[in-house]
C-alpha cells in the first residue's frame, strides 16, 4: 500500500479532510517535539510550542501552497516559534546562578523553572554529564547557528531546506554550520578523543 506524501495529505486537509491532518500529526509529532526540546530545552514548553505549530498548520490549511516541501513549511513555523520563545526567555529576569548555589537548594517553583527553561529534577537525573556538555555547547551557540545545527544534525533536514527555513542562502547555511562546528569543537574538546587539532 502506497504511503501518502505529506503534500498529498496537506492538500486533503486544505479540502477539509480531518483524518489526513491526523496522519500528519502522527507522522511529525515526534520529530517536531524533539526539535523543540533541543531548541528550548524545557519539555513542557516544547510540547506547547509543538501544539501551536500544528495548530498554525491547520489554521493556514486553506492558504497552503505546495511550493516547498511540507516539512520546510512546518519547520519554518516551528523555528519562528522556538526563536521567539528563546528571546522571550532571555528578556525575563532569571535568578542569578550564584544565588542559587549559595542557598544550596532549588527554591524556584516548577512554574518558574519552566519559564526560565531549567530542567526539573527528573530531567537532570536522566541527563548524563556527556549529554549535559553537548546540550550546553549547543545552547551557547547564536540562535541561527543553533537552529542550523539542530535541523542538520538531529532533524535530518538538508541544506537547501535549512536555507529556506532560516531565510538565508544555501552558502550562508554552510558558513553558519562551519562556524557552529568550530565553536562546538572548542567547547567539546574533552569529549573528542585525541583532543583538538
Amino acid at each position: 500500500m502506497a504511503v501518502d506524501s505529506d503534500l498529498e495529505l496537506m492538500l486533503r486537509v486544505s479540502r477539509g479532510d480531518a483524518d489526513s491532518f491526523g496522519v500528519l500529526l502522527n507522522r511529525h509529532r515526534g520529530p517536531l517535539l524533539s526539535y523543540f526540546v533541543r531548541m528550548v530545552r524545557d519539555r513542557g514548553l516544547a510540547e506547547d510550542l509543538a501544539q501551536e505549530a500544528f495548530l498554525r498548520v491547520y489554521q493556514a490549511r486553506e492558504r497552503y501552497q505546495p511550493e516547498a516541501k511540507f516539512t520546510t513549511w512546518l519547520y519554518r513555523i516551528a523555528t519562528n516559534l522556538a526563536l521567539n520563545a528563546i528571546r522571550d526567555r532571555q528578556s525575563d529576569p532569571v535568578l542569578p546562578e550564584a544565588l542559587v548555589a549559595e542557598t544550596n537548594g532549588d527554591f524556584a517553583s516548577p512554574l518558574e523553572r519552566a519559564q526560565d527553561g531549567r530542567p526539573n529534577v527528573e530531567e537532570q537525573l536522566a541527563e548524563s554529564d556527556r549529554e549535559r556538555m553537548i546540550r550546553e555547547a549547543i545552547e551557547a551557540l547564536p540562535e541561527k547557528q543553533r537552529a542550523a545545527v539542530i535541523l542538520h544534525k538531529y532533524q535530518d533536514v538538508d541544506y537547501r531546506q535549512i536555507a529556506s527555513i532560516l531565510k538565508v542562502s544555501e552558502s550562508a547555511v554552510k558558513s553558519l554550520l562551519f562556524r557552529a562546528y568550530e565553536s562546538l569543537r572548542v567547547r567539546l574538546e574533552p569529549l573528542l578523543e585525541g583532543g583538538l587539532v
Binding site: 516544547a46 510540547e47 573528542l192
Partner: peptide, 25 residues
C-alpha cells in the same frame, strides 16, 4: 576531528515523548 564531533553530537538524545493528551489538545 569533524567526523568525531558528529559522533559526539549524536550522543545527545533528550527525552522527547509527547504526552498522551498531545493530539487531543
Amino acid at each position: 576531528s569533524y567526523r568525531r564531533l558528529d559522533d559526539v553530537l549524536e550522543q545527545w538524545n533528550p527525552d522527547a515523548q509527547a504526552s498522551p493528551w498531545f493530539d487531543a489538545r
